[in-house]
Amino acid sequence: MNKKIWSAGFLAAVMLIGAGCGQKPGAAPDDTPEQVTPAPEDQTGQGSGGVTNGSGGTSGAGNEATAPEMKTESIKAYYTDPEMMELVEGSAEISYKDELGKYEAAFKTLQQSSDADKLPLWEKIQLHSVQFEGGKLTIDVAVPDEANLGAGGESFAVDALKKTFFQFDEVDSIQLLVDGQQTESLMGHVDMENPMTR
């Protein structure tokens, strides 16, 4: 009698264990797509706004192919020496997706330098926006008081801007705005053309 009860209990335990194990593999595939699906959607969201949810991996690869590719270009950028006695030419590598991105990246090269002998003249000047239409490049900036470089520095800063952007063949003129307004001078010392031409 005890053997029968013990055997029945043993079989019941084995069935429970078997049933428990049988459910886990079923649960794992259900969980797996939930964890895998967001990754392709996140990637497509960065590239093109996440158009399709259905077949994540396939549509993700397709959307990334149609998204604009990053372009890299080596350009000239202009700085001044530590004594602010002359304009110094340097080179910089820029990466961008489109034409406006190229001009924004070129402006950033004027704001920073890893070479102690090449001081950036536009470091403290903030970029509001860049527009380009029909050969005319419009750059809108903010010039805080601490960005004032004096007459010599201002002259170099304007020259650095012109030389940097006129290296792009499509740019015929540069209209520099301060807080959205045309101004006769960037920092109050040197007269400036509106617009500046080659």
Rank of each mutant, 00 (worst) to 15 (best):
F165H: 00
I75C: 12
E73W: 00
G152R: 08
E73F: 06
D140K: 10
K102S: 13
T197N: 10
G47E: 13
A92F: 13
A77S: 15
A160M: 06
A19Y: 09
G49H: 08
Q46H: 11
L16N: 11
N2E: 15
G26R: 15
K76V: 08
Q131V: 07
A151R: 04
M192P: 02
E86A: 13
V36C: 07
V141T: 01
S185C: 07
A13D: 09
L121A: 10
S74H: 10
F165A: 00
E99L: 15
G54S: 13
E86L: 12
C21V: 01
A106G: 03
V143Y: 01
L149R: 01
N2D: 15
G60L: 12
Q111E: 15
A65Y: 11
G188D: 09
P40G: 00
E99V: 04
D81M: 00
I5Y: 12
Q35C: 06
V158M: 13
M84Y: 08
S185K: 04
G22Q: 08
G49W: 11
G49I: 04
K163C: 07
A160W: 02
D159G: 01
Q131D: 14
T32R: 12
Y78V: 01
L110N: 11
G49V: 04
M1R: 11
P68D: 07
G153T: 04
A13N: 05
F132Q: 00
N53V: 08
A61S: 08
E104T: 10
D145N: 07
E73D: 04
T66P: 06
V171M: 00
K3A: 15
A8Y: 15
I174A: 02
T32G: 05
F168N: 00
S48Y: 06
F156E: 05
E170G: 02
M15P: 02
V51N: 01
S7A: 15
G135C: 09
A61N: 11
P82W: 08
T183P: 00
E41P: 01
S74W: 05
W6V: 12
P144F: 12
N53Q: 13
D117Q: 00
V36F: 08
S59I: 07
W6F: 14
P68A: 13
D172R: 05
M1Y: 15
F156V: 06
S95E: 14
Y78S: 06
Q23E: 14
M196T: 03
A105N: 10
V158H: 02
K124M: 13
F132D: 03
K102H: 03
A61C: 09
N148S: 09
L16A: 11
K136A: 09
K71T: 04
P195D: 05
